[in-house]
């Protein structure tokens, strides 16, 4: 009898009108950054057919920071981004977004929805669409099939697109096909697509590759202006560029962190001089 009462009580609790069913409440989706750190990578190992692309890598990135990652070709920079965004599964190690989200438990689409945007090493935009539609598809919001079918552009969304167009300086190319843009403009559009989604963390792989000096300078301004609002991790080979934006630089070598510090500290680090800058000299 008391069992029955208990059951009835539970059922009444479940059917209360003023509360939502627990399984319908969206899960807490934003990273907990109470310790100032937004990205924890610990002991990451990735190997491709025995070749260790990442080797016991440890990296912490603070919330709102602009971090530069440098390293020779094949050092594992892109692989690191692949692991963070769920493209590549790591053999061991852990990757946490804030203190509460285990990145290794999610796939690419989920990680993107959590607020991690990624620019590819080779600029990738939707060439058959206009600049405007590229940004429209990148907006934050439901990415389901049904909502895409019934979606119509709200005024908030179109304001957001205008805002992003202004930030990346492509207002006048709004109705141009993305495929017709110059290489540098495609890079900017791709960054704009990330911004349209209002991410917490931006991973930007070689943003100034193939840009003129002037374009690179503008990109540097853009990226520094993003820091604070977003956390930005930039991979770049162009030392001039890194020097112009860097606050903290991390040097990767053969899949692990070799040195970390300001540009000057890093450049005077004997290990770095030996394995990385030494190669160029």
């Amino acid at each position: 009898m008391s069992n029955l009462n208990q059951f009835a009580g539970q059922a009444r609790e479940l059917l209360r009108r003023d509360t939502t069913w627990p399984f319908l409440v969206p899960r807490q989706r934003s990273p907990d950054v109470s310790k100032q750190v937004i990205l924890y990578l610990e002991g990451l190992n990735v190997s491709f057919d025995g070749f260790k692309a990442l080797n016991d890598l440890n990296l912490y990135v603070n919330d709102g920071e602009l971090r530069c990652l440098i390293g020779a070709n094949g050092a594992g920079k892109t692989t690191l981004m692949d692991v963070i965004t769920g493209k590549t599964r790591c053999d061991s190690g852990s990757a946490w977004f804030g203190q509460n989200i285990d990145l290794l438990a999610h796939d690419e689409a989920e990680i993107a929805q959590l607020g991690i945007g990624r620019k590819f090493q080779k600029p990738t935009v939707f060439e058959a669409h206009t600049v405007f539609h590229n940004l429209e598809l990148s907006l934050q919001g439901s990415k389901g099939v049904w909502s895409a079918l019934t979606a119509s552009l709200t005024s908030i969304e179109s304001d957001r697109i205008d805002e992003v167009l202004k930030i990346i300086g492509l207002q006048n190319a709004r109705f141009q096909l993305a495929g017709a843009l110059s290489h540098g403009q495609k890079q900017w559009l791709e960054i704009g697509m990330l911004l349209a989604a209002q991410p917490r963390l931006l991973l930007i792989d070689e943003p100034v590759a193939g840009m003129t000096a002037e374009e690179a300078e503008r990109t540097a301004e853009l990226l520094t202006s993003l820091a604070g609002k977003h956390t930005v991790i930039v991979v770049e080979h162009d030392m001039e560029f890194v020097r112009s934006i860097a606050r903290t630089v991390t040097v990767l070598h053969q899949g692990s962190v070799l040195a970390e510090g300001t540009m000057d500290q890093v450049q005077n680090n004997p290990d770095v001089i030996e394995v990385y800058l030494g190669e160029e000299a």
Binding site: E110, T124, H133, K143, A148, A197
Partner: peptide
């Protein structure tokens, strides 16, 4: 438009959350 995006750059679409 998402479908055409998938045709032309599926990885890009996936990393946008689709």
């Amino acid at each position: 438009r998402v479908i055409v995006a998938v045709r032309d750059a599926e990885a890009r679409a996936r990393f946008l959350g689709y």
